[in-house]
């Protein structure tokens, strides 16, 4: 079995250059590649384009990369929790493409699956449709969306093995599996790394063929945005 293991986050992200096109898994702060983000903060790189459903919060997740002005462009669906993001956007320092969430997920999926374009009803009649091809199928209008593929995809899983196979937990799965498949180089950080053969092949969510580097992360904070309990 091919061993994809690297030592740690610093080794995993050491060759990501300025101007790279990245994908980062996560929904809100759930399932984000915390270790890789910390390692990127140590690097002197900038002008990154990041595909991520959200943009973190001011002092955690992608918000930290924004604070350090490492990001040129975000491709996201919802960025409401980040004041620094909104400030950089309104002042023109940051470019942003806002994309319907399902379209974003499918564009990434299509990238990994080798489908260069597809038609979706989401956004027909809205500013999202501007400049895009519209076609009618069986009496309903759809617009054409293109695939997304990355130079590096940074994903986070619960468990992984040295062959790069991944298992996710809870709603921390979200965009991670599609982003893993859509990366030229996919870096997976996992809470628990085991030797190949120890995960049940029936239970694996993301096949290791999509993963080029894997390491066991540490000190996961797993910050909660909206701590809500039963009254």
């Amino acid at each position: 079995m091919i061993n994809k293991t690297v030592k740690d986050a610093n080794e995993a992200v050491q060759d990501i250059p300025s101007g790279a096109f990245l994908m980062m898994g996560g929904f809100g702060l759930s399932g984000i590649p915390e270790n890789c983000i910390s390692a990127l903060l140590q690097r002197d790189i900038k002008d990154l384009t990041i595909v991520s459903n959200n943009a973190g919060v001011d002092d955690f997740g992608i918000g930290l990369l924004l604070q350090k002005r490492m990001v040129k462009k975000m491709i996201s669906s919802y960025v409401g929790e980040n004041a620094e993001f909104e400030r950089q956007l309104l002042s023109g320092e940051l470019e942003v493409d806002l994309i319907p969430q399902g379209t974003l997920a499918e564009r990434v999926r299509a990238g990994g699956a080798g489908i260069p374009a597809f038609f979706t009803p989401a956004g027909v009649g809205t500013e999202v449709a501007e400049g895009k091809e519209i076609r009618e199928f069986d009496g309903k209008l759809y617009l054409m969306e293109r695939w997304l593929r990355s130079d590096f995809s940074l994903v986070k899983a619960w468990k992984g093995d040295t062959a790069g196979n991944l298992i996710f937990k809870g709603t921390a799965r979200n965009f991670n599996p599609m982003m893993a498949a859509a990366g030229k180089i996919t870096i997976a950080e996992v809470e628990e790394l085991v030797p190949a053969g120890e995960l049940d092949p029936n239970q694996i969510h993301t096949p290791g063929i999509y993963v080029q580097r894997i390491f066991e992360g540490k000190n996961y904070e797993k910050r909660i945005e909206q701590r809500t309990v039963r009254s």
Partner: peptide, 16 residues
């Protein structure tokens, strides 16, 4: 000019 939060999943939901 005032609020930029994004559409999240709303556009997909209302279209379908």
């Amino acid at each position: 000019g005032k609020m930029v939060k994004g559409m999240g999943g709303a556009m997909d939901l209302v279209a379908s």
